[in-house]
Write a protein that binds this DNA or RNA. Structure first.
Lengths: 197, 197
DNA sequence: AGCGAAATTGATCACTGTCCAATTATTTTA
DNA sequence: TAAAATAATTGGACAGTGATCAATTTCGCT
């Protein structure tokens, strides 16, 4: 067939992305299938590939969208002007993951095939989240130590990520940890204190 | 056919496990295939399933074996009696992952299907690694704070895990971090210092 | 109405894990 | 030793997957 009257190419891309996102949230990375997305929106498999190029790139697009929602949720909470901004940072990181476990895990379950590059847009989004953290760290650090903020931000994101990943995959439950987020926040506070915050 | 003269059941299980481990190290979780393991050892797919029950359980067995090697490597380094035991702990955690990226990542790439339980042996192995960390923390903490060691161990393992995961998946490279292990060690030291070490 | 460009299809291919009836080898029994 | 019972092994069948691309259909335009 040819162009359908009810969808421009851009709209179709958005439609596939939205349904793909829904499916990913529902079944998770391992059970995600491009065929199922096609079935749900009433298109054929071929169309998905024509629009997104590969299963890989569709997953990347879905993960990028998740990343955007995640960063937006964090920003919204910070923009409400809380007193303890560091706590809000950690809590909003965790709560998004807890509320959208399949979407959050899909970001880290996915590995790019050898040779494939992360699109520029994705890089910016990822750097953006770290940038948000960096800005908050700068607020808390004495001005003469602001130069350390970037490295601290990367390391603290990794710290919180580790706690979050263990919480969602059940590793912490196995080890008897009851408050992963509290532990993460405590670690972040120690580091900031040591850095002069 | 019936029993082959050259392999008892236990030997066959060990053979499959060894070849599976090799394949996992070679191609990683996503490209791992039970059929390929069968082909390499000269048995048919059916045999793999008869011995291990499912693809899932084979992967779990492989990951358990990886876990054992990992813990052994860490223990060997600690038993050499280094002066800075905490540094050795973090370094040996990292170096095993760096030297066996596919095996290490497979541990975390794998998710148990709904309803499936982690075997008791695996639980013990995982608890064992945390136990090793806990023992080292106790050595460093003032005796009156030894009660906090278990919770600290869980949290510090998560911290190091986060840094290690970001290092291996390229997230850190994307963000410009050049010394993930150094950052992890710094975080661990801060936490231990704050806890009175 | 006719044309060319764009969009869409779905059969086909090579692969996966799972299942299980049939087959074959080994042990045990008579 | 021969027959029966047990154990191990096979590999075809099935329902999936992502990828590919010649053929088809529909659209916008003249």
């Amino acid at each position: 067939m040819g162009r359908r009257s009810d969808h421009s190419r851009a709209e179709l891309e958005a439609l596939i992305l939205a349904e793909g996102h829904r499916l990913m949230a529902e079944v998770g990375y391992a059970r995600f299938s491009a065929r199922e997305v096609a079935k749900r929106i009433g298109y054929s498999i071929g169309t998905i590939h024509n629009v997104f190029g590969s299963h890989n790139r569709l997953v990347m697009a879905i993960n990028s969208h998740t990343f955007t929602l995640w960063a937006e949720a964090m920003r919204a909470r910070l923009d409400a002007g809380p007193a303890d901004r560091i706590a809000v940072l950690v809590e909003s990181y965790f709560s998004f993951a807890a509320e959208n476990p399949n979407l959050w895990m899909a970001i880290y379950d996915h590995r790019l095939p050898e040779g494939e590059q992360i699109p520029e847009r994705d890089r910016e989004q990822r750097a953006g989240l770290t940038g948000m953290v960096e800005a908050e760290i700068i607020r808390v650090l004495p001005p003469e130590r602001a130069g350390r903020a970037a490295a601290l931000a990367r390391s603290l994101v990794a710290t919180v990520h580790g706690h979050c990943a263990f919480a969602l995959t059940g590793t912490f439950a196995l080890l008897g940890e009851e408050d992963p987020m509290g532990a993460a926040l405590a670690r972040v506070r120690e580091t900031l204190a040591a850095a002069g915050g």
